[in-house]
Design a protein around this nucleic acid. Structure first.
Lengths: 191, 191, 191, 191
DNA sequence: CATGAATGAGCGTTCATTCAT
DNA sequence: AATGAATGAACGCTCATTCAT
């Protein structure tokens, strides 16, 4: 029983401050945000930052994991609403819309992850989100609204290619263009 | 009579070697590919690289311009085939497929351009491609195959979000999912 | 209560070592002394040098400031001796002699400053020195020894044109030739 | 008989153009004026520049030699006027004044020479100038106007420390302060 | 001979990471 | 455990010089 010692309260606080600062700085300044700047923004010294995240890659991965946690929670909430009777296709549509809005912030983080070769997925949160999305898709397919060959991977594919660095109008248009690939009906002008 | 002297044969050769090396290195290693490495891969000294492209930004812009030239030529060829009677929607579909294949190379280059703040568009080639695509779209709309609200910008939007760094199968699937957003008919299982 | 934390002992030591090395290297090799070489001579890594002086210009400016501080202290000491009764002209003469000795080192540094566009003067030390020199000159003028139109700027002019890169004998000769321009009496053979 | 082939007319013309361009560029941009820029300003290719002057040091030395030639001619003209009866001290004064004006242009050239370790003196022109100045000084000493211990080296010393990079007013003031070191009489207010 | 493209050592500077305090 | 000074490899870029055309 490797008894993981309960983390000290201030260490937890520092970890949160660092993650928040990293998210903010990378969003603002791209992959070039320096470790010193992130540490300064978090109000700690670089050494402290490195105690929590041994490399920049680890830090960026943690920021992404944090985001994935939110995505997973979002997907699970949507699944719960569907289970309670909400129309599945609408929830899928709204989910994609919400995630894309949220990841406008995260675009730079993704770029940083890519530049550093960080593991983007494969975490427990990924699996939580996948499970919830699978339920959503199956329900929408049972409703006859979503094309029978659509899988969770398709959602991920779209989600990963979303133009998160584009203005709101462009992102909305993208969603409009993209959704008919999932559904059984042709696109209508009003999306 | 400002007779621009014909460029030396070896200089032309070097320019080509440099562009090819830059394309390859940036594709392979992302925006972080160093100028020294690109020069070495091209078989020239850094100084030569800088003689041809005064900054890294210029080099990346040139690589993109080269790509855009090919895209424009491709779009024009498709337009010519349509003018000669080929079905417009098929040509649009094939065009997107071809460009996405070609831009597997181009993905990292775009990222590099973004990181360096290089001018991505606005060149003559961009306008050539746009003109040809507009013709294609109008014809496909006249055929009743493409949704009437689709514009050239939509094609660019899709083209810019293509998962160019993914394996062939994924890219094909993406095209399958994406095309119904442009057309007037619902997607069928066999794409 | 912005309590500026006391600087670490080793950081202070490094700063001194760097300044000394910079003075030596620039004196020896001119403005072309490289930052790497200065760092090596100081026994630190380049990064450390840059932590203390963010640009080469800053480093050179600091070397000059250090020198100006010594000059100011020297001028103030001379003024104090005059206030205590010493003959002002003798003190001026001796002051010029001392400063010129000291600035053999300083010649190349000035050149470097010029080449880099660094701020040479305008510091507090400059003003300290000027104030002390003004007192000296006024006293010598009151004594009837120094020409009434001589100003502090004249002293600076001479000081700035001193042949600091010449051998001792030449510097002495220069002082002999130069001093009569300040005084009310003609030069005599024994200087 | 090493028969030095008569230089071709265009080669001579090129040499002159290059020297003129070098003087202009170095005056304007300091020691940092590049060989390419000098060549461009001269209207020749770098290769041609290097055919005439194998290193930058050689080029700078040639620019200085050219200047020294003018100084020598100036000194000889002054000597001739003195031989014809003009007052020697006045000629010395005027000579210094003229040379200092001319070398405002040459300041940067001197700096470049220093930075490159070029031989500043020791040419035939130097000896011509020295001979003429010696005559001037002897005559002025015979007149009782110049201090008996003054030598040609003293003139060179002053000439080499002139504040050539300062504005006209400062240069004039410097001459006023400096001249009494040479003469037998004390300075008067009106210089 | 002139040309100008090619060379490559070197420069000032940055920043992820380490480690003495 | 936190601090922040120190490290040093790497980067984009320059320029005196060489050499194929």
């Amino acid at each position: 029983m490797t008894q993981t010692r309960a983390p000290r309260a201030d260490a937890v606080r520092n970890r949160k401050k660092i993650l928040a600062a990293a998210r903010a700085q990378i969003t603002e300044r791209g992959p070039d945000a320096g470790m010193d700047e992130i540490a300064a923004a978090a109000g700690v010294a670089v050494g402290t930052l490195y105690r929590h995240f041994p490399t920049k890659t680890d830090l960026v991965a943690a920021v992404i994991a944090e985001f994935m946690d939110q995505v997973a929670a979002d997907a699970e909430a949507a699944r719960d609403r569907v289970t309670a009777g909400a129309p599945a296709l609408d929830e899928i549509n709204a989910f994609l819309g919400r995630v894309i809005e949220a990841s406008a912030t995260n675009h730079a983080v993704k770029a940083a992850a890519h530049a550093l070769g960080a593991d983007t997925g494969a975490g427990a949160d990924q699996r939580r989100a996948e499970a919830a999305l699978a339920t959503l898709i199956h329900q929408a397919q049972a409703d006859g609204d979503v094309h029978p060959d659509v899988t969770v991977d398709d959602i991920y594919l779209l989600f990963n290619t979303a133009p998160t660095d584009q203005p709101q109008a462009t992102r909305t248009r993208w969603l409009t263009l993209t959704l008919p690939g999932l559904t059984t009906s042709a696109r209508t002008t009003d999306g």
